[in-house]
Design a protein around this nucleic acid. Sequence first.
DNA 1: GCAGTTGTTTTGATGTAATCAAAACAACTG
DNA 2: CAGTTGTTTTGATTACATCAAAACAACTGC
Lengths: 147, 147
Amino acid sequence: MTTDAAHESTEGRLRSAGLKVTAPRLAVLDAFPADPIHLSADEVYARVAPALPSTSLQAVYGVLAALVASGLLRKIEPAGSAARYEKRIGDNHHHLICRGCNAIEDVDCVIGEAPCLTPSDTHGFRLQAADVTFWGLCPSCQAALAE
Amino acid sequence: MTTDAAHESTEGRLRSAGLKVTAPRLAVLDAFPADPIHLSADEVYARVAPALPSTSLQAVYGVLAALVASGLLRKIEPAGSAARYEKRIGDNHHHLICRGCNAIEDVDCVIGEAPCLTPSDTHGFRLQAADVTFWGLCPSCQAALAE
DNA sequence: GCAGTTGTTTTGATGTAATCAAAACAACTG
DNA sequence: CAGTTGTTTTGATTACATCAAAACAACTGC
């Protein structure tokens, strides 16, 4: 038996992305348990470090960059806070960020994909992507402010 | 005569924003000549420094922050490059950024304001703003890539 | 006009987030 | 199992921005 059942799908995804299967990469990918989770490099490192004591934060940056380049992770770079990574990819969803605590929620645009991806004037640009970010206050930060 | 005609409107905007009128602030505001221009703190400093030799980059950061807080400038923080500032405010326009050279163009959403400001699920957030950023390649970067 | 108060700018240090280069190392090929 | 190639580690370095305190200038009332 050549594959560890617990890592079966994670390993398979690395292989089909043309990446070598290494312990840091398995650990980083497995640090994203559920889909709607958004972790900073720091947070990923905190989750990975206990199992891999020899890992450094720089290594995590390298692994994350490789996974983003291969399309296994998506990088989000909100204004004013550290970059976050998420496993939910391939669908055009957007983000709702709390200005109080930087919490991030996934949202789908109410009108679907097309309109937000079509500016009125492209200025000759070849369009590649569109980011939509909503800013506001999450329920607990609203409560904290109301006190 | 108490006001310099060349600075009349700039000065007036500072006053009505409740800010003291100082040389650095006049110079920074006047560094934005036409509306659709997007300058980084560095670029503002480069435009301001010749006329105000005693100004430092930190001072420019301070002035820019004050102007943004007063609503006289808008701050844009694109992923992967330094923050930019623009004078066009009060309308809900978006930005088109070149991944090759970081050039920024203004765009208006084809469907107007409302739809892009309305996510399907607010997760209980109190919404404050929505940013839309389009990513692509500007004409000259397309040409450079085609060579 | 002039002095006091308040807000602003300057100066210098500090911090965070992230990248880079080179050496040590491990995964996949035959 | 050995060689090659790609990855990780280590350490230094960068870019961008913020903070604190002292020096300073703008606006108020006199």
